[in-house]
Write a protein that binds this DNA or RNA. Structure first.
Lengths: 194, 194
DNA sequence: GTCTATACTTTGATAGAC
DNA sequence: GTCTATCAAAGTATAGAC
């Protein structure tokens, strides 16, 4: 078997939950997309939809973090890396018809006040992103507190632009947010290096 | 009748859709919250859940805009007004146990790729917010293009901070985003007045 | 591990009396 | 305009054969 059933179910889950949310995605829909039998789901995920979603969120968050870290590693410096991330996000939005943006934001907002298990999963993902970006900013000479604030603001700009760009079906918000993120980072780095 | 049935249904809808999303909110739940009979919904909203949600989104967006414009009007200058908006958002998050943030973001992400009617409703709301803020920035001497970029970035920071603050159950992201929004606005206004 | 069939619940929506 | 009763469909989850 090329890809095993469990992985196909997770793949389909990541895509559907990201695009349609938790409540908006049916289990039957996931299984149809994954070309898997109904019983397979409960064989691999005895906890049902909740367990499946939690694992989809955590792996999806880790995959997106890897993607971003790859872009940052490939860039000559941190500032260029941030520019590249926003440009890449804009391109992905355009290429997917404004469907694929943040892999977990839709679910995060949906479950924040209703499902503590899933809320924790989304919180762990965001916390990991913030920590990773903060570390990179600290490593170029910025103090911890300032770096944390810049990391959070950069991710907030990215997430907010995802909301606006998907809704308005335009890359303009992503581009504008990228500009502001770049300027904010430039200002912080300039201060740190003086 | 103190408040009429139609308005009670809309009130409950605005709250529930904002906190739990579109697919995650049941019509029966709305009617229970509104203390309204089942048939009343289809009397006032023949289009059913979709029509109800569209009206809830549009009115909710308009109400939030009025709230923000009130804060901006009360401030001595635009920069202070922006600071006040982020501080107010942080306080509301804290006071509601991180439940009430953007009234339409959850639904916006959910329906962006699945329901064109509702997507258009959320898009109209965001477009109205962007236009209103852009106008205010232009009115203090900033050119149209720069003002649009700053308005979009400010709203993106607010929306992104809503996602992070609700998920992490912390006002830290909202405060950090407010700082960055303030600095971005200060830089633009400084340039415009020179 | 996978298939088919099905139980049980909830959902959105409608009909008809009043 | 509101009430009660009810429908058909979709939702999640389980059972048992293979």
């Amino acid at each position: 078997m090329a890809t095993d059933t469990r992985e196909r179910i997770l793949d389909a889950s990541r895509v559907l939950f990201a695009r349609r949310g938790y409540a908006g995605t049916g289990i039957k829909q996931i299984l149809a997309e994954a070309d898997a039998a109904f019983a397979s789901l409960y064989h691999f995920f005895p906890g049902g939809k909740d367990q499946l979603a939690a694992e989809a969120i955590r792996t999806s968050g880790a995959m997106y973090q890897q993607l971003v870290e790859g872009v940052l590693d490939a860039a000559p410096d941190l500032l260029t890396g941030i520019i590249d991330c926003f440009a890449g996000a804009a391109e992905t939005l355009r290429a997917t018809g404004y469907a694929d943006a943040c892999p977990i934001a839709t679910v995060a907002l949906e479950v924040a006040s209703t499902d503590e298990t899933l809320r924790q999963a989304t919180a762990d993902v965001f916390a990991s992103w913030i920590t990773a970006l903060t570390t990179r900013i600290v490593s170029v000479g910025v103090d911890e507190a300032t770096a944390t604030e810049l990391a959070i603001s950069t991710i907030a700009l990215l997430e907010g632009a995802f909301v606006l760009s998907r809704t308005l079906r335009s890359t303009v918000p992503m581009t504008a947010a990228g500009q502001t993120a770049t300027e904010a980072a430039r200002a912080v780095l300039k201060r740190a290096q003086s």
